[in-house]
């Protein structure tokens, strides 16, 4: 399992969670944080690398109403779309550049 939940938030509803993502670092954490931070309902979003020798990140999401899991999924989905968009745009521009 790559992703799991940190205990301690069970009593505070679905709107705040800390997820632990194994084998990831700033590469994914920062990109995802930047996206999720911009969403309307998000109160707080942040991540940390608890220890530099351990390859995992803690990803914290707090919202007003939307379940944190939904936000995380939306973030991942949007990041994926963003990647696809970057790829398409980049390949188009490279083609354009090579023509001239």
């Amino acid at each position: 399992m790559k992703i799991s939940e940190l205990p301690g938030d069970e009593s505070s509803g679905l709107t705040c969670r800390t997820y632990v993502i194994q084998n990831e670092s700033h590469t994914l954490g920062n990109a995802l944080k930047c996206l999720i931070d911009r969403y309307e309902d998000v109160q707080f979003c942040g991540y940390t690398l608890p220890h530099p020798a351990e390859s995992k990140i803690h990803f914290r999401i707090q919202t007003h109403e939307t379940p944190a899991l939904e936000v995380l999924k939306r973030g991942l989905h949007d990041l994926q779309k963003l990647c696809n968009h970057t790829l398409n745009l980049f390949e188009k521009e490279v083609k354009e550049f090579n023509k001239t």
Binding site: K2, T27, L28, A31, L76, H77, L79, Q80
Partner: peptide, 11 residues
């Protein structure tokens, strides 16, 4: 990066 998102989403 995209594939990372995909595996996490699937999970």
């Amino acid at each position: 990066l995209r594939d990372k998102c995909k595996t996490l989403l699937d999970e």
